[in-house]
Design a protein around this nucleic acid. Structure first.
Lengths: 123, 123
DNA sequence: CCATATACCTCTTGCGACAAGGTATGCATG
DNA sequence: CATGCATACCTTGTCGCAAGAGGTATATGG
């Protein structure tokens, strides 16, 4: 292979990505929370159907904060430190976009799944 | 790094994967189709919202066939060869499971997104 | 003769998501 | 007081899906 042009290419934003991010932002939009709590809150909000582990939540929290979507403050509770995260205005806007996108995608898939059932009396 | 135990671990079945597979099976369940046609059919069935490229479709088709979910037959049309794929009984069962799973997941997410809006006057 | 559409396919890469592991504190129990 | 469990934070390494880019070949139209 010509290793001449080994520099760039493109991203791979599979149309199904970013769901954990969506759930995190949406859950935090109901009120300030800390990571450990968030993990359980998401589990609860989805009827135990979806478990976003700590290995997903913490990195996402940091990334979202450095992107200005979240704001954090440290709080000492019972001698233990908790880092509370709150959604910023920018985060709210971003969340709205994610929700719209999610709905668009799932509508489309729902349509493909249910829509125009198979021909005639089936085959 | 300790390269001592580089043998196994576990899969990474992110709860959001397998959507292309679902769309492929579902679309084929409306009737026999060939790869090139499938790509466009999925695009059409989702109102142009979702485009599953050939780089996704063909490998998936081969994998599904070798898993017994699809059956293929070659057909010569206008001097060009087409490989038509049809869903097997096993494929239908699998599809049904995928659809159930998809609905379960999206219901859960829909619930998390819409359910229990944010507290009081917000914060 | 060349471009375009059809039709098949593979290779490599990129990123998201994950499990597993690592630190540290408070609290209960024996 | 030691052991264990729950809380709370975090990072590292791995894996697999999905995607893009490329590669072959034939028919058709200019």
């Amino acid at each position: 292979m010509p290793l001449a042009e080994m520099h760039a290419s493109m991203a791979n934003p599979s149309f199904m990505n970013g769901v954990p991010e969506l759930l995190i932002l949406r859950t935090l939009s109901t009120g300030e929370m800390y990571g450990y709590e968030l993990v359980q809150a998401i589990r609860a909000r989805t009827n135990q159907a979806i478990k976003v582990g700590e290995g997903v939540v913490y990195p996402a929290l940091h990334a979202l904060e450095s992107d200005g979507m979240l704001r954090s403050r440290r709080k000492l509770v019972n001698g233990r430190t908790r880092v509370y995260y709150a959604v910023t205005r920018k985060g709210e806007k971003h969340l709205a976009g994610l929700v719209r996108h999610w709905q668009h995608i799932t509508d489309a898939i729902g349509l493909a799944i249910g829509g125009t059932a198979h021909a005639a009396t089936a085959l």
